[in-house]
């Protein structure tokens, strides 16, 4: 996929005859998550710490939900010896919102080593979150001992295959995909034929005007293949979504915010609640990035980007856990 210039996001895509108001955008990704508000068919995003800026918008919104990612329960290395504390900070941010989001998407790596007590910790902590409904997809860390059997038993009930599923909320079709199973040497994330067949059938009955939100752990687009940050057969999944006017892809895995818009597809990766990773190519390898203690929570959180598109203001305002 060729890189898209920043200003292409400002272009109108009406040449395809698809109602612009159906185009989902979810533009704000904070270290702790982002709040997405579907307003009149347009998805806008706000960072958690900027709930006040939203004013009454949430209450008028048709749909609000959260994305959190890479909580890595059990991680205890110097990059963050208190992943419980930072995850709690994320929950506190959600609880402080003026209106409760309808549900949460957790885009994988719930745990660091897929241990039962790590899954327990996550489950216990989420009981303190006022938003009770959480949809999960697994990360590679969640399946490393048993090919994901425990994960699926506890967090993937009712899903298909290795844990993929879809659901509808207020006219938006959500698809959770698994791209951490069946990897092969030298490869990247993989969806596999069985899942792609299911996806094709799942999308078939939908009209092209249906907004799609697709979420998976590893980025579906080629962020940085050298570090494994991409999905080998991601383009096959995206080809199945080509006819849709509005596709928003939400991923985790790389522990940092990256965005890209290509045609009607907007790609976003979220930050971790546990530890940051280096920017692609900026270090010898990926992995937990050590920073000064007083810097950690700000790195897990802050980034502000604002796009203006015609009369629609698309704000990207990331929120630090602290600062």
């Amino acid at each position: 996929m060729a890189p898209v210039k920043k200003d292409e996001i400002l272009h109108d895509h009406n040449h395809d005859g698809i109602d612009r108001r159906g185009f989902l955008r979810c533009m704000a990704w904070a270290g702790t998550g982002a709040l997405c508000v579907l307003e009149g068919g347009v998805l806008k995003s706000y960072a958690l710490g900027h709930a006040g800026e939203m004013g009454g918008k949430i209450s008028k919104g048709e749909l609000t939900f959260m994305q959190i990612s890479d909580s890595h329960m059990g991680f205890d290395k110097p990059a963050n010896t208190d992943v419980i504390g930072t995850f709690k900070a994320a929950i506190d941010k959600i609880n402080a919102l003026p209106v409760a989001p309808e549900f949460i998407l957790h885009t994988g790596d719930l745990t660091h080593l897929a241990a039962a007590e790590e899954f327990d910790a996550l489950e216990q902590m989420l009981k303190d979150c006022r938003t009770k409904q959480v949809f999960y997809v697994p990360g590679e860390h969640d399946i490393l001992n048993d090919n994901g059997a425990m994960y699926r038993d506890r967090f993937g009930r009712g899903t298909r295959g290795q844990g993929w599923f879809s659901f509808d909320q207020k006219g938006v079709h959500f698809v959770g995909l698994v791209n951490v199973q069946g990897v092969t040497e030298g490869g990247l994330g993989v969806l596999g034929g069985e899942q792609l067949d299911w996806l094709e059938k799942d999308l078939a009955p939908l009209s092209a005007e249906t907004p799609l939100v697709v979420f998976a752990h590893v980025p579906l687009w080629m962020v940085y293949p050298k570090w494994g940050w991409g999905t080998d057969d991601g383009t096959k999944a995206l080809a199945l979504m080509k006819r849709f006017g509005s596709v928003t892809v939400l991923n985790g895995h790389i522990h940092q915010v990256m965005q890209k818009v290509e045609g009607n597809v907007a790609f976003h990766t979220a930050r971790s609640t546990a530890f940051p990773q280096p920017a692609p190519g900026s270090a010898p390898s990926p992995g937990p990035m050590k920073v000064a203690d007083d810097k950690l929570r700000s790195l897990l959180g802050i980034r502000n980007v604002t796009f203006k598109r015609g009369e629609q203001r698309l704000a990207v305002i990331d929120t630090p856990l602290q600062g």
Binding site: E140, H141, L144, V183, T184, E185, G186, G187, L188, P225, K226, W227, G228, P286
Partner: peptide, 12 residues
């Protein structure tokens, strides 16, 4: 014998 890391399959 070629091998890889099943968590990070680009490692071979």
């Amino acid at each position: 014998y070629t091998y890889f890391c099943s968590l990070h399959p680009h490692m071979t």
